[in-house]
Amino acid sequence: MTQPVTQIFKDPQALRAAIRSNQFNANTSGQAPGFVQCNLAILPKDWAMEFLQFCQKNPKPCPLVAVSDTPGNPMMDSAGQDIDIRTDLPRYRIWRKGELVEEVADISQHWRDDLVTFLIGCSFSFEEALVADGLEIRNISENKNVPMYNTNIACAPAGRFHGNMVVSMRPFVPADAIRMIQICSRFPSVHGAPVHFGEPSAIGIRLINQPDYGDAVTFKLGEVPVFTACGVTPQAAIMQAKPDFCITHSPGCMLVTDIPNAKLAIL
């Protein structure tokens, strides 16, 4: 279980230092505003090319931000200064043959020389633009992890990887939902425009107040759910493909990079 957020870090390097020293173990939504946050997938080299192809075929739920330069290298210099992928996320998930076997705060003891790291864009990055436009992000205002749901929206398969899209959800009144769509369209590298809004059952979601991942949030009078492609989608694909070993982030616990959000925006 992650701890509730007790401090907002403005600097991503300070946040990563706090995570590395076990001073911070919470969801990263709202942290280090202005900087790109990333979902994580780490796979053995013999699975990496197929996963890369899966991301390339499904850029909306799996927008690649960075890939490790060589197998076994845990440092992600392309994403920021002194980023050690083994220690710099609040929580990780360890998977074996498609089954979640453990959640840990440090993966150093699980590290191997054949592992390839993939950083995938996260919707937390566009939340800053929404807040700047005056929109309330309910998971931030209620200090919760964003609600996420499995859907019936099929991803394009690639080799052994296949499955349906996972989405995150934020409630808005219709006028704000339209504004949210306009803003998010400027950020294709972090999921871009929503994939659906309105009736949840149209995309296979039965109970909006019971998310598959994250926390339920409050709906106010007149609000509709707005669904955005989510970087937990690779975890769903991994569960289907069942590699012998894999590491992902725990939902809501991202790698916060030194890359400015503005670099990913289309103006």
Rank of each mutant, 00 (worst) to 15 (best):
F172V: 15
G231Q: 11
W95Y: 12
I208V: 14
K97P: 00
M76C: 14
T257C: 09
G80D: 01
A236L: 09
V256S: 04
G159K: 04
H162P: 00
M254L: 15
V190G: 00
D84G: 08
G214H: 09
S201G: 00
A132E: 15
C55E: 03
V65M: 03
K97M: 04
L130S: 08
V101N: 03
I181Y: 05
D46P: 04
E142A: 03
V217G: 10
F197Y: 13
R186M: 03
L89D: 01
G134N: 08
T2R: 15
A229C: 03
L89Y: 09
Q23K: 14
V166K: 01
I205H: 07
S141C: 10
Q13M: 09
R86D: 04
D82L: 03
V226S: 04
F35M: 02
E142N: 02
E127F: 05
V217W: 06
W95I: 15
W95R: 06
M148Y: 07
C122A: 11
A236F: 04
Q56M: 14
F126D: 08
K263D: 13
W47N: 01
D215P: 00
A241G: 05
G121S: 06
V167E: 04
C38I: 14
I42K: 02
A48H: 02
L221Q: 14
N152D: 13
I259Q: 09
R20C: 11
S21M: 06
A79Y: 11
V146M: 15
R93K: 12
L135R: 12
N139E: 04
A193C: 06
K10E: 14
V256C: 05
N73G: 10
T248M: 11
I247A: 05
F161S: 01
F245Q: 13
T218Q: 09
G34M: 10
G198M: 10
D46E: 12
G159T: 10
V131F: 03
P157K: 08
P90N: 07
I205S: 00
I42H: 07
G231Y: 06
C230F: 02
D176E: 15
A66D: 12
E102A: 01
G80A: 14
A193L: 04
F219D: 00
M239R: 14
W47D: 11
R179D: 10
F126S: 09
C253Y: 04
S21R: 10
A175G: 00
F197V: 05
C230L: 07
S189V: 05
P63Y: 11
V104T: 15
L135A: 00
L264A: 10
A26D: 00
D84W: 12
P200N: 14
V226I: 13
P243D: 09
E102H: 11
R179N: 11
P171L: 13
E99G: 01
P194H: 10
S78P: 02
I266T: 06
I183G: 04
I83C: 08
P4A: 15
A156Q: 14
S201K: 12
A66Q: 05
L207H: 10
V104H: 06
T228D: 06
N139C: 13
A158M: 07
A229F: 02
I247D: 04
Q235N: 01
I42W: 07
V65S: 06
K60R: 14
V65E: 00
I203H: 09
Y213W: 15
M1H: 05
D69M: 11
M254Y: 03
G34R: 12
F219L: 15
H191T: 12
I153F: 08
F187L: 05
S141Q: 09
G98Y: 12
F124V: 07
I137E: 05
